[in-house]
Design a protein around this nucleic acid. Structure first.
Lengths: 195, 195
DNA sequence: AGCGACATGTAAGCGGTTACATGATTCT
DNA sequence: AGAATCATGTAACCGCTTACATGTCGCT
């Protein structure tokens, strides 16, 4: 469960509440591991149950109580173990490839439209990563002032940018190949409701 | 629900049983949309409930009965709609990036080991795709003899290969950058259980 | 006698998202 | 007066995987 370990990794830097963690995720690793508030609270609950984190209620005046979690020795051991363990390479799993695979009865124009939409989405992602996300990471890194950390964070961002750039390049190459596709069989083109 | 639509797309070519579908998935689109037997049976059940497919029991001698599903007009309409609808570009979501992000206290050697393991896995995927998967697609395409289909199928396979090749190239580039990383802070290197 | 192919399903769990629920304080 | 921030959670659902359950036939 990667989210559990991401939470442990954050707690290993400093004690945090669910609310803090939500912001930390948003500002730090959202570009490669998005999550939700409710999932974080659930994971914290589970971590406590398993003795990997310990909670402590902190009262505040004029504000709701905070429930601050600390990593336990068991939690540190678990984290250390996980950090070393090779993760399985993710399988390709993309819904648009289903569309492409079964596009036999679609016109080349319709296929092209799908690809162009995808290129557009990838461009937006890159703009986001190079803009807001990059700025956010820079800011956080400057606060901490640890060069080694800054570079590691940058690697994760660069990965995302490179990935979406790859996506665009590959799709553009595919556009040409789609245009060269033999045309639809007439019977299917006119008579079928088909795909 | 992409699996539902993948099943509809198969049924749009010909009526099939759950067992047939499992084999069809295995032989055709497993390289970008893997699934399981039980999931297929569940989806078929749901499709029938929603009137997108209709089942028919076919008795056999010496074999268990088959439950053969046919796509309905509603199913065809739904499929046609989905085929045109742009899919959201998948977010980057990779657990090893969590490891990289928090690798501050890991030695460069440990980071390198993770990357190399990933490169190795990607190489294996490429070998698989260029070998068995490519052969399987060729065989199926030859049986059908429709060039337009053959090419579309090839595109989905080429995507996978290109993706894993990208992965390798990017990781190899990262290896150099990891070696150039400023070393661990001594205090953390020696005293902490840490990450 | 044992295994693989044929054939259909259920149950439990996992990691995750969306929607719901509550309520004070501070800023505009 | 209304919105944003602070703060914690539950419930329901989704897509999917793993494990379980059952049984026949044909081949070796």
């Amino acid at each position: 469960m990667p989210l559990e370990h991401a939470v442990l990794a954050f707690l290993n830097l400093q004690p945090l509440s669910g609310y803090d963690l939500q912001k930390a995720f948003e500002e730090s690793i959202n570009h490669f591991w998005s999550t939700t508030q409710s999932h974080i609270y659930k994971v914290l609950h589970d971590l406590e149950e398993n003795g990997l984190a310990a909670a402590q209620i902190v009262e505040q005046d004029g504000r709701p109580d905070r429930k601050v979690y600390q990593i336990t020795p068991d939690g540190q051991a678990e984290l250390q173990l996980w950090m070393k363990s090779p993760q399985a390479l993710e399988d390709v799993r993309e819904a648009w490839l289903i569309q492409l695979f079964f596009a036999h009865n679609c016109t080349n124009e319709k296929i092209t439209a799908l690809l162009q939409n995808r290129i557009e989405q990838a461009r937006e992602k890159i703009a986001l990563y190079q803009g807001q996300v990059q700025a956010g990471l820079h800011k956080k890194a400057d606060e901490l002032g640890v060069e080694r950390m800054r570079l590691l964070w940058q690697f994760t961002l660069d990965y995302g940018i490179a990935r979406y750039q790859f996506e665009i390049a590959w799709l553009e190459q595919l556009l040409a190949r789609v245009n060269a596709l033999p045309s639809l069989p007439q019977s299917l083109n006119t008579s079928h409701a088909g795909d």
